[in-house]
Design a protein around this nucleic acid. Sequence first.
DNA 1: TCCTGTTGCTACTTTTTGTGTAGCATATTA
DNA 2: TAATATGCTACACAAAAAGTAGCAACAGGA
Lengths: 116, 116
Amino acid sequence: MPSSIPRPGAPVRGSASGKPIMALFDLLGRSWALGVIWQLSNGPMTFRQLQESCESVSPTVLNNRLKELRETGVVARGDGGYALTPTGRELFVLLEPFGAWSIRWAERFPGNEPSA
Amino acid sequence: MPSSIPRPGAPVRGSASGKPIMALFDLLGRSWALGVIWQLSNGPMTFRQLQESCESVSPTVLNNRLKELRETGVVARGDGGYALTPTGRELFVLLEPFGAWSIRWAERFPGNEPSA
DNA sequence: TCCTGTTGCTACTTTTTGTGTAGCATATTA
DNA sequence: TAATATGCTACACAAAAAGTAGCAACAGGA
């Protein structure tokens, strides 16, 4: 059984009253949710393509994440497979800076020398 | 046993070679990771305060998340309990816009009327 | 029409995570 | 000394994810 889909206004992890930010964190804080959005930012992908580009995601989980992301208006199916909706693209705009940030984070990672 | 801590450069979910963005998504895509960072943005909190403000988080998980966030340089312990490091505050700066966005998302949520 | 390949899944078993509750050891304050 | 807070650890249980198999629907092509 898929876990319940986080909806703002309904109880979610972190908020019995469903504060939107907590509903969003519940949605995004599930395995592969962020990864799927990241992959789809490059354009529509089929289920199988997503499976390949997200190494080691199981079809069960991928299907659950896609269901959740569709029901929350972030992803939709169309030509060429799954794609971000306008809402999803908005979300990606917020997510995009994490790419560059993660690289700087990696460089100064505790125990890493800044790679010469 | 706590799950392994995602480190850029080491294999993580989504990337055998540990692409930084995938390591970051692995770190943040665990339950309560985003919520903890969000809570700590208001200032340092004790373990118990975090437990209370994150409704329904179990101490086991909270402790695991804090360990991971500390070892990845996002959170540290100091006066007044746990607090974001400068790195953690940087991360929060990227996260902050999600607050406002989530409210708009809630308003036009599939099945919600834009509240009059 | 039969074969071959692709796609989007579902089913199932095993392993990993998270929940929920209890409670302990170490301060701190009265 | 007792009461309180703090930062946990230890379970027993439940939920989620991994890993693998395979099926139904469709699209060519021979």
